[in-house]
Design a protein around this nucleic acid. Structure first.
Lengths: 235, 235
DNA sequence: TCTTTAATCGTCAACTTGACGATTAACGCC
DNA sequence: GGCGTTAATCGTCAAGTTGACGATTAAAGA
């Protein structure tokens, strides 16, 4: 394990940062912490932390997710987003951050408790004052939002933002929240229910609440939606 | 710049690896080097190297690209692919590699000279014996190929694998090479020429060679192709 | 000149999409 | 219990796109 033959100037700190998204009442929220230490003390930041010597990148991301949101990633989704390594992005020294994107259902939110816990902030409000975000987190967040918006076009990950059983209406709310754009209920219903293996109806499962009761669905075995939905054109 | 307050066990080496693709005579090739030092001495590997203290990730990738292929990335395309940080991926110690994908036109290839220069290998042959690749480069290559195949579905990056001026037929050859699948010339022609701002005809530009001369095009201002082409369905 | 090779234009039926009307089935309220 | 409200779901239709594939065109080479 001696690595004296390796160049010393490539020794850097490696961190993970998390763009954790959820949809509450039709509004997209992102998990943010308030930094308690310098640099950027008191400023909002994405949850994250340094990768430990004995864990890989995905493990570090899952650990931070659990530590800062109390979420164990059951029906949620976690994927690597991109890495950010500009020379001066952290004033403490060279830090390369491997950002991850997490999509979790609102029902699994824990009422923010201790100081370590992240707060859920409406994305619109955060973007309106993105300059306050620590480090290069404004860009990381923007990249995460773009990734989420494009990924639900052609995959079934949007269901990760819903409870395990959900209605077409709930799924549509997720699309509208992530795309920041209204989606026609009738065409959306036709699209997602006619896509093979995309949704599986729960036998006898019906929703409650106002309006006509809706069929409950679970995500189907198809992870890809073909042809994809087009957020530019839709409606 | 003192960073004593940061955890020491997150100090790692950061490298860039490159999946450099090009199409020669309708066949997809990837640039590989033969490792001259341990570990994996004598085995094929993706070009790459450690990130220096004064350069960011994209700069490191461009530097390695220039060093190992002599390519200055004119009309080519370079994007970040993903990061790989499994604990034991490099026996010399903890190394996190930020992989990049480069797509370059065949015409810019330099006849491999010195030992530092990479060799162009047909992708099929490399995949047939992917186990010989050093480190986790088999997975990195697979991810790069998948990225390239999916990205040309909905963007104009395929043109990065063509010379600055090219025919529809040349572009189609690129698609066929990357997708490993035949594409109908008539439908392909209709699709790419009718997509707004995707291709711009070069006034008076006509190809030579066998068969009816073809109109020459340049990439248009539109970077996205909507609706995308579907490599699953096409033909 | 004839054959071969590509490029490009056309045709057509099948499918998908956006727009939007109509119906259905619960809820809350009088 | 009847009524308005809210959603879900079904239908319709014209417009656009796609896959399959025929036909024509223009050059190179024999």
């Amino acid at each position: 394990m001696d690595s004296t033959e390796l160049p010393a100037d490539s020794l850097m700190r490696v961190a993970v940062d998390l763009v954790i998204l959820t949809v509450v009442d039709g509004v997209l929220h992102v998990a943010l912490v308030t930094r308690g230490i310098a640099p950027f003390r008191g400023r909002p930041a994405l949850p994250g932390g340094f990768v430990r010597a004995d864990e890989d990148l995905a493990q570090a991301a899952q650990r931070e997710l659990a530590e800062e949101t109390g979420i164990e990633l059951g029906s949620g989704h976690l994927e690597q987003l991109a890495s950010y390594g500009a020379v001066g992005r952290d004033p403490r020294g060279r830090v390369v951050s491997v950002a991850h994107l997490a999509l979790i259902p609102a029902e699994r939110l824990r009422g923010g408790g201790d100081a370590r816990t992240a707060d859920w902030c409406p994305v619109d409000a955060v973007l309106a004052d993105a300059g306050r975000l620590a480090f290069d987190h404004a860009r990381v967040l923007a990249d995460g939002l773009e990734r989420a918006a494009s990924k639900i076009e052609y995959t079934s990950v949007a269901a990760s933002l819903c409870p395990p059983e959900f209605t077409v209406g709930q799924l549509r709310e997720v699309y509208q929240a992530v795309w920041r754009r209204p989606v026609d209920p009738r065409n959306f219903h036709r699209k997602v229910t006619s896509a093979e293996d995309f949704l599986v109806p729960v036998p006898g499962g019906r929703s409650h609440g106002a309006g006509r009761p809706a069929q409950l669905y679970r995500v189907g075995p198809a992870t890809l939606l073909r042809p994809p939905m087009d957020r530019q054109t839709i409606n």
